[in-house]
Design a protein around this nucleic acid. Structure first.
Length: 509
RNA sequence: GCCGCGUUGGUCAAGGGGUUAAGACGCCUCCCUUUCACGGAGGAAUCACGGGUUCGAAUCCCGUACGUGGUACCA
């Protein structure tokens, strides 16, 4: 048991966007697998045909690829334990359900949806708003526990739809040791008779997760804490079907919360931050939910923040690359309590990673942004130096466009308001004279430009400082950016002169 | 309602019987910078509450409150 090869899995259901919590679960799986020289498998939990969403599975691969968290085994890259889509494993599950029935650990139930509703509303009281299908109610229902063997067989043979439910034992303490929560226990009397096999022959999550984790030899199972309350069902199933000694070690990860509790797509829309890894468009409603990728996050930053949202190494370090995470990650330092996602901090992580990465690593995504905006980059070396010049001012990737587009085209508008109040004839004349001086300048180089600028200012008896701001606004459009004379050097003599005279017309108007 | 899991500044968090209760984000002040940032120096702000145990509790125990998840032929 102890020397089994480590195998972990991420098992999403392809029903929509991949949210923060999902990515973090992938990440912890990935880190653990890499650290332990194990195998990371991706299994698609598509047992609910009514929730099938076209494109969702491809989307998951895309997100994992962007994050750099690719699985070792998946539907696209099958290993020895396929198929990796539960819908394709359908024939596997029935025999396990029947085995449970044979041992009276499960039973057939023929209740229709209407009959279930009826039962629930009949037993519903103020104290018990949601009655369960359990030891209190099951003997009032239509199932093989109350029907005779002959009646049951008759119903099955006449193709009456049925499900198979687990028969929860009475008053048994079910406990296990969770890798993050420690000892957790439940009383079986309080757990309902969960459906294991649906009327369409598909297993529910409860059966599928146990059967597949066994068949795929999963050793450690990470999932969100929302699954903790159904853990007793899974544990019982392991005990009945395969033996507890083969059960993976569970780790129920704390939830990632939004500003007001559970993180929802709504929060993202409402507070202006993404909740999905990448843009997701619901094919039915056409509704678009923004992703971190499109928002301009670096995968390194995204992963880094998710890693430390619920885990830390005990030191003051906050910035980790993937290799450090692989080396340092440990389940016993994963928190037990949920954490609110803080978009401000997310931006900080991105900014830090922009500073951390080399220009050549940054170039590709930034170049893409410029090209999407219609600015073709021919000279990559020049582009690199511009990236270097402005990177301290950027927190999200699109900021590079805002901070550097004026190197490639003249400003679309000028921040006239910050110039106008102090604008006068003398200043206007200064710039006219400056145009001439610049024109005559043989070496177009920042210090030389600065020299003529300052000596002209002295000559005209105006403080150079008061002229630099208008000059800046003329060249970049606003009050931002690196040293003005550097900008002038980069955009060139003709362009500088052109922008000064164009702006002069506006300022003098 | 019932069951599970939680609770250290606004947020992320370290600390797990004796600490001036780290650090980070955000916020504020100042320095640097005749732009915006970066950077630097400071500041405000925390152990949910009530009982125990103990010489001593943020740390251990019990309650309460609050939050959160579950309570589907969804995962």
């Amino acid at each position: 048991m102890e020397d089994r090869k480590i195998r972990v899995r991420f098992a999403p259901s392809p029903t929509g966007g991949l949210h923060l919590g999902g990515v973090r679960t992938v990440l912890y799986n990935y880190l653990f697998a890499r650290q332990q020289q194990g195998t990371f498998v991706l299994r698609i939990e598509d047992t609910d045909q009514s929730r099938y969403v076209p494109g969702a599975e491809e989307y998951i691969y895309k997100c994992l690829a962007w994050c750099g968290l690719l699985p070792d085994e998946s539907p696209l890259k099958p290993g020895a334990y396929g198929p990796y889509r539960q819908s394709e494993r359908k024939p596997l599950y029935l025999k396990y359900a029947e085995q449970l029935i044979a041992r009276q650990q499960a039973y057939y139930a023929f209740d229709t949806a209407e009959e279930l509703d009826k039962m629930r509303s009949y037993f519903k009281t103020e104290e018990n708003p949601s009655p369960q299908y359990d030891r209190h109610t099951r003997m009032n229902m239509k199932n093989s526990l109350v029907l005779t063997e002959a009646e049951t067989q008759q119903l099955i043979h006449s193709n009456t739809p049925y499900v198979i439910r687990i028969k929860m034992p009475e008053n048994e303490i079910i406990s296990f040791t969770d890798m993050v929560h420690g000892e957790v226990s439940f009383n079986s009397s309080l757990v309902d008779d969960k459906v294991l096999l649906k009327a369409d022959g598909m297993p529910t999550y409860h059966l599928a997760v146990v059967v597949d984790d066994f068949l795929m030899k999963i050793t450690h199972a990470f999932r969100g804490e929302e699954w903790l309350s159904s853990a007793p069902v899974h544990i019982l199933l392991w005990k009945y079907l395969f033996g507890l000694e083969w059960m993976p070690q569970w780790a129920h990860l704390p939830l990632i919360l939004g500003p007001h509790g559970k993180l929802s797509k709504r929060d993202g829309a409402k507070y202006g931050f993404p909740v999905f890894a990448m843009n997701w468009t619901d094919p039915k409603t056409n509704e678009l939910t923004e992703g971190f990728y499109e928002k301009g996050f670096l995968p390194e930053a995204f992963i880094n923040q998710l890693a430390v949202l619920g885990w830390n190494d005990g030191s003051e370090q906050e910035l980790f690359d993937i290799n450090e995470l692989i080396a340092k990650f440990s389940l016993d330092r994963v928190h037990t309590s949920g954490a609110k996602f803080d978009f401000e901090k997310a931006k900080w992580f991105n900014q830090e990673w922009i500073k951390k990465l080399s220009v050549s690593q940054l170039r590709i995504p930034i170049k893409q942004i410029f090209e999407d905006k219609g600015i073709a980059i021919q000279d990559e070396d020049a582009f690199d130096s511009i990236i270097e010049l402005v990177k301290d001012r950027c927190t999200l990737l699109p900021d590079f466009y805002i901070q550097a587009s004026y190197f490639f085209k003249k400003p679309e508008q000028w921040d006239v308001a910050s110039v106008k109040p102090k604008w006068n004839l003398e200043k206007s004349e200064f710039f006219n004279a400056l145009i001439k001086k610049m024109n005559d300048l043989p070496h177009w180089e920042m210090h030389e430009i600065e020299n003529i600028f300052k000596s002209l200012a002295t000559e005209k008896n105006i403080k150079a400082g008061e002229l630099q701001l208008p000059f800046r606004v003329m060249l970049v459009g606003g009050k931002f950016g690196p040293a003005v004379f550097m900008i002038a050097e980069k955009i060139g003599k003709d362009e500088t002169i052109g922008r000064v005279s164009a702006a002069l017309n506006i300022f003098n108007a």
